[in-house]
Design a protein around this nucleic acid. Structure first.
Lengths: 253, 253
DNA sequence: CGCAGGGTTGACATCGGTCAAGGCCAGTGG
DNA sequence: CCACTGGCCTTGACCGATGTCAACCCTGCG
């Protein structure tokens, strides 16, 4: 498949005016595709990765374990996201990355990536995309620090909804987010049982409906309101669902 | 003063092998120096800054206000840090930046910065420095989400200690961190009164001593232990205090 | 001297955590 | 086909960390 770098290119192009030879260079990467099952590490804390891992399909997360088993998820990674750009700054991973659904990963050779980074437009694109990641991280800090349970959950759902919508993965207000309540709690800083109760309340207010990993949001504006969500920070262009696009094989129940 | 870009260059050089002409270009920036008092905005949410603001001395913070007045601080900015690289990605600020102590800011013309970003070594340095910022943000998420009050406060103190030490601002385990308990609470997601009680407990265990904005850490190893602090993620080289270096005019009570 | 901005304290409220028991499937193996 | 199992979701009773409110107290400063 020649389109294997599709998502990555789309993402960079959203930030930087890539030239034809930049795109050429990206396509020229030869990357190994591997499949990772839910719950298994793509990279573990302490690893010194020799490859760069690029999410091709599925959903993964950055996470960190404290000694006593507490876990905090610090990012969701969706197709087009690079897992370990940070090797350029830390030779050892200071956190792990795990598949939240079955995930397809492309392994890019480190030296190939080095070459890519020589290209100013690509470096700039990555810089900008990292700046957006930062904006997302800031929102997560706000959720964990100052929003209460329902606001935080709503905000996360709004974020994921927006990101999914931007790549055409939302159909009629529904998209797949097959994560457990434990996972959810670990991303926001709550207990699974409190997540459970909060979700129940949200369902009973018809803010959301959940069905086998599909999340349905009947009235996104109302959810935005509750979350105090302002999509600006995601730097996404609004894009309606692309019905022609086949759904990913992964992420389905 | 020809050394006005000192901190910025030092920081970039820590990430990327700048060439002489890169450094030349940075020195060639002509930047206006302005003073900002504690509590006043350097940039406000919603601003569309025409300049890039670089912290030259003092301490500032990124923060975000929720509608009902809750505040969350999402980063501390120390000398050498750029406030608003994010204009490259969001034309409007999605958060504010405020001085936590009297602060000296250098305003760099936006087009000058554009030119700087054409330089691959500088772009790469900024990318890497942004990656470290990300690592810090992740730790803050963990603090807000999964650490309890004392652990989180301890972790923050460890982080600031390490960053201060790296630029020679720690003397005998002491450094200036003249922020209020309100500020502290807003960075970790706690109430000022709970911060107060937690600090009292830490003081009574002789983990810290506080005196007019100076923070003294008698046994940094013990604090590391309580916080679960692993300095790796900061990507700092250990550097002992440089007694010859005059303390900044700002940050003193 | 008086004020303002922080720091402290106490009494009490609450959000969210803990523990422990069931319940509900989907997948597996007999 | 059915019983079993392992994940995950739900529930209830109770607990505890942190929040709220409201004084009061310092201390530096005009």
């Amino acid at each position: 498949m020649k389109n294997k770098m599709q998502e990555f290119i789309r993402k960079l192009a959203g930030f930087s005016h890539l030239h034809a030879d930049d795109i050429e260079a990206i396509h020229a990467l030869d990357a190994e595709l591997i499949t990772i099952d839910r719950g298994v590490d793509i990279i573990s804390e302490g690893d010194k990765p020799k490859f760069l891992n690029l999410v091709h399909a599925g959903l993964a997360c950055r996470y960190k374990l404290l000694e006593d088993g507490r876990r905090q998820i610090t990012a969701y990674l969706i197709p087009g996201d690079l897992c370990d750009l940070n090797v350029y700054v830390l030779d050892k991973m200071d956190h792990g990355i795990m598949a939240l659904t079955q995930t397809l990963i492309m392994r890019i050779d480190r030296t190939d990536m080095d070459a890519l980074l020589e290209r100013p437009r690509i470096a700039l694109g990555l810089l900008k995309s990292t700046l957006v990641d930062e904006a997302v991280l800031r929102q997560w800090i706000i959720s964990a620090g100052r929003r209460r349970a329902i606001e935080a959950i709503a905000h996360l759902f709004c974020e994921v909804h927006a990101r999914m919508a931007a790549v055409g993965h939302v159909q009629d207000g529904s998209f797949f987010l097959p994560i457990t309540q434990q996972d959810l709690g670990d991303t926001i800083g709550l207990t699974p049982v409190h997540v459970n109760r909060s979700l129940q309340e949200m369902r009973s207010n018809d803010l959301i409906r959940m069905d086998h990993g599909a999340l349905h949001i009947p009235d996104i504006a109302r959810l935005h309101d509750i979350a105090g969500f302002e999509p600006l920070y995601l730097h996404l262009l609004e894009k309606s669902a692309a019905p022609g696009r086949a759904a990913d094989l992964v992420g389905r129940p």
